[in-house]
Amino acid sequence: RQVTVQRKEKDFEGMLEYNKEDEALLAKTLINDIRPSTVSGTVPCLPAYILFMCIRHADYINDDQKVESLLTSTINTIKKVLKKNNDDFEMTSFWLANTSRLLHCLKQYSGEEGFMTHNTPKQNEHCLKNFDLTEYRQVLSDLSIQIYQQLIKVAEGIIQPMIVSAMLESESIPSLAGVKPMGYRNRSSSLDTDADGPTSYTLQALIKQLGQFHNTMQDHGLDPEIIGQVVRQLFHCINAVTLNNLLLRKDVCSWSTGMQLRYNTSQMEEWLRANNLYQSKAAATLEPIIQAAQLLQVKKKTSQDAEAICTLCTALTTQQIVKILNLYTPLNEFEERVTVSFIRNIQNRLQERNDPPQLLLDTKYTFPVLFPYSPSALSLETLHIPASLNLDFLVRV
């Protein structure tokens, strides 16, 4: 019978010992050279836990220089990797997950009462013994914000070219195909036939892209709260780009685009629901385009219609409402243009709102990001390091 000589897990203290000379190798192997696929299928945020277990050992032996040096090289190497991969969503998401997890670990094991309420007795035994790393937490928090901003920039760069064709031009409702205002060519089909022209994207392509972002962030173990903030920011971008185009293009200010847009926004709300993201406040960012879609569809003739529009369009400014009404283009000879007196009626009713004279939305506006503390249930002493990581110079203690 095989004799088990391996130490039992209860004998480990959840620390990793390394020689000071191996610090650069650790940063290179675990941060610089690692690909997210190398650690997929292991504990999410494995690099963060390994780094923290190394910090714990340096703290345990009371070596302040070793702690400082490891944290500094960790932070600098993460920054280097992000710079090298500044257009790579996967790498940016991976390091956002790991940096914020390392930040959570420094809080969870800080020994401060406020961060210990969800800890197991074993986790409390694993708290740092000698050093207070509050200032390094601030650095990691600042770094997390930088990585978050890079993640948003990369994701926006990918979806920006898709938004107008997916939200306003592609025909996701088959029965509406070809229903365009008088005098306008079918824009999306003309784009399709133009080999040198910009590519046109369907709503399904946009939603598929959002799904890929979401899956990647989940695979990397990014906190659900942070994922929600990313999605909300991307939905803001989709709303702003769509509304701004609607406000500048007469050919899309029609009943049929209104119908299309309402359908598209409902599909996006459905995507949020299907992915448990409805609480992320992302849905609320679509309110302006939902109201614009309704404005394109409602009757615009009587005084009652004017009153209904004013009650309906609370997320649009007076300028935006008036602009859409002015641009509104009838579908056929049976539909009338919006009359000047109707628009004046609306303007009079909205006067008391004192809306800012703002027509276009700021597509670059960013919501303030928050990284709420999220302790982990993981027991450090149970963590295994796969041999494929080539970290055999780390010794479990």
Partner: peptide, 30 residues
Amino acid sequence: RPPSRPRILLKAPTLAEMEEMNISEEEESP
């Protein structure tokens, strides 16, 4: 829970300061 003695605060440079130090180190190395 064992009574914990006060931990020593490790002073950290800011992220920008760390970057500056890192850049000057890179410049020094050939």
